[in-house]
């Protein structure tokens, strides 16, 4: 039985192009639909109608926008640091594509099986920070630089509670038993393997959002900050910083940043589904359907939050992270460890 797509295509020359094409196609459709959904959700929350003209319900609006962006001239401002300026969009774009490949859409639909998937997802998230700083620094523009500085400070701070809350889930998974019965038979449990996290929830019949509600909330808040979304969107706060780190980018380079931003949304919500909402676990419908249904539900909440709350001030943002989220997530981790040790 083919376990993963890589195993299915193993040895074939076409393995890489097919896998890359699959992911790119999926992500492109995802981004197009997410931008449309974002505009619709914001419109409905504000009692407007959103895009209605291009295609049914305005569904093709983003496609038209994308075609326009592709057809635009690539402008390179004269005083930019050329290598950094050109490399940054690619570096922002590549890791998010790579990270998506790690997710288990169902027990048998995994593009890349990796025993340390969780770590890899966070590591790829870390590369995005470098890309943003490269863009801000290379642009040679004060707004871009300020946006990049803010973004780096924010992302590094919020990665701490993000990882700490994920870590308490890993502790729970590891405590659930030394072994796990999977498609391959009985295997040693590994809390850092994304599919093991889901399988544990499946077999214990309980989603970790019930066992770890505080971790789930902290994860969600930090994920909003990680993806630079409102109310934590100060890196590109348009009322103060023009467009933040991508001020000097236009055309397809800009849309690569945009692509990365919306794919990041998908990644953090897929990770939330894996960690807290039982992954592909669900009745009747096939695994991937459940997985994506749950992911898009989380994304809907992210949009809902964005169109509800105003943007935080920078000091509020930092205070909130260091004085609230990090202490609470450490407390939560210690409490989890304590309970596991006692039981």
């Amino acid at each position: 039985m083919p376990q993963t797509l890589t195993q299915l295509l193993d040895g074939s020359v076409l393995a890489m192009p097919i896998a890359a094409g699959l992911i790119m196609g999926m992500l492109t459709v995802n981004v197009l639909m997410l931008v449309w959904a974002e505009r619709k959700v914001s419109a409905w929350i504000q009692m407007r109608m959103g895009p209605t003209e291009v295609g049914p319900f305005g569904l093709l609006q983003t496609l038209a926008d994308m075609l326009k962006l592709i057809s635009k001239q690539l402008i390179t401002p004269s005083n930019v640091d050329k290598p950094l300026y050109h490399l940054a969009p690619l570096l922002a774009f590549a890791p998010v594509v790579a990270a998506v490949a790690l997710f288990p859409f169902s027990e048998s639909t995994i593009l890349v099986q990796n025993d340390y998937g969780l770590l890899f997802v966070f590591a790829f998230g870390g590369i995005a920070v470098i890309a943003i700083f490269m863009a801000g620094w290379g642009s040679n523009n004060k707004y871009a630089l300020l946006g990049a500085i803010r973004s780096v400070a924010q992302n590094i701070s919020y990665e701490v509670p993000l990882i700490l809350s994920a870590l308490s889930v890993v502790l729970v998974v590891n405590a659930m038993g030394p072994t796990l019965s999977s498609g391959d038979g009985v295997v040693a449990i590994n809390g850092l393997d994304l599919s093991h996290i889901v399988m544990t929830q499946d077999q214990q019949g309980i989603w970790f959002v019930v066992l770890q509600p505080i971790a789930a909330i902290i994860y969600f808040i930090s994920a909003l900050a990680e993806t630079n979304r409102a109310p934590f969107d100060i890196p590109e706060a348009e009322s103060e910083l023009v467009a933040g780190f991508h001020t000097e980018y236009s055309g397809m380079r800009f849309s690569l940043f945009f692509f990365a931003e919306y794919t990041n949304m998908l990644i953090v919500s897929m990770l939330a589904v894996v960690l807290f909402f039982g992954g592909w676990d669900g009745p009747v419908l096939p695994g991937p359907a459940w997985f994506f249904l749950k992911s898009y539900a989380v994304i809907f909440v992210m949009m809902w939050v964005r169109w509800t709350f105003p943007r935080l001030r920078f000091d509020q943002l930092m205070t909130f992270c260091w004085k609230v989220l990090i202490p609470l997530s450490i407390l939560n981790l210690l409490a989890t460890a304590f309970v596991i040790a006692v039981l």
Partner: peptide
């Protein structure tokens, strides 16, 4: 925060379910 989100959700459902968008086409 939750009470704020309930306000926007109410507006959202009003627009979606009762089709009460204020926009004139």
């Amino acid at each position: 925060l939750l009470s704020g989100m309930s306000v926007t959700l109410r507006k959202f459902s009003q627009t979606v379910i009762r089709r009460k968008a204020v926009t004139m086409q």
